[in-house]
Design a protein around this nucleic acid. Structure first.
Lengths: 141, 141
DNA sequence: GTAATTGCAAATACTTTGCCACGTA
DNA sequence: TACGTGGCAAAGTATTTGCAATTAC
């Protein structure tokens, strides 16, 4: 069953957000998108470009993220991280969304098999993955 | 067995890079770091802050990434992505590092069990994960 | 009516580039 | 010597905030 705009808006209302045109169009855009979108993409999308300012989209995204309606992928500390590639070694990370601490995960990575399948099925070259777990660490909680 | 600075430098030499003080200090810093570091962290780290300019660190990171000595995590298109959280649905992504295309992966996510283990063992709250596969898509290759 | 939301403009933050000097091979 | 590399300064791109005006409830 497909998630409707109506349902999604009502989740927002429950969270205490006001029902504005900008909110509706933003949610509709994200619902229709098969993939995650950036702030810029959203702000310049058909539905939103005429509708509202980029700052508004930014603040909406911010609020929706806080209320757990949407999720921000990839960049959590606004800067890219670099790590040495150690031959034969691979690390996944556990990151605290509150204090920003990052620690490598010791457990064996469960993704390699899927990675092999993807390599075969899609024909992508130089395939690798990133796996990050996010949550609030005991100190912050 | 621990990876040494010597080995790492020699990987760089093989890749055609020159052995400079800045390169050595950058590699040493990354080798000593238990976790990935940002450009700013690196540029202002003990070993590098006196050693060289931020632009130099940037260009070193760029070269090392091109030559496969280090990897850039998280932000690949320099902007954060947003996606709706659909209850009961979770998606992992396959991203082309060349053209930037993003597509959801249909296969079942192999990470949930590990996620449960981490939740129990570490006591992190609101745990979730992001899994992304990066590679060069057939069109770009 | 009141507090949340918005637009516009300006401020930050982080990244990236130009240009010339310098150092490694 | 030649070309990769470095420093400094400036430009580029994305995010974030201040404040007054507006709008949902």
């Amino acid at each position: 069953m497909k998630v409707t705009i109506k349902e999604t808006i009502s989740r927002c209302r429950t969270a205490g957000l006001r029902r504005t045109k900008a909110l509706e169009e933003l949610l509709a855009t994200l619902l229709e998108s098969p993939r995650p979108m950036t702030l810029s993409e959203l702000a310049s999308s058909d539905r939103l470009t005429e509708q509202c300012d980029k700052a508004t989209v930014f603040r909406l995204l911010q609020r929706l993220t806080e209320h757990g309606v949407i999720r921000r992928l990839g960049l959590h500390e606004r800067a890219a991280y670099f790590t040495l590639i150690l031959p034969g070694k691979h690390s996944d990370y556990l990151i605290c969304t509150s204090c920003g601490s990052i620690e490598p995960i010791k457990a064996p990575c469960p993704v390699h098999q899927l990675e092999d399948e993807i390599r075969e099925k899609t024909g992508y070259k130089n395939l690798y993955h990133e796996l990050e777990f996010f949550g609030v660490c005991p100190q912050c909680a």
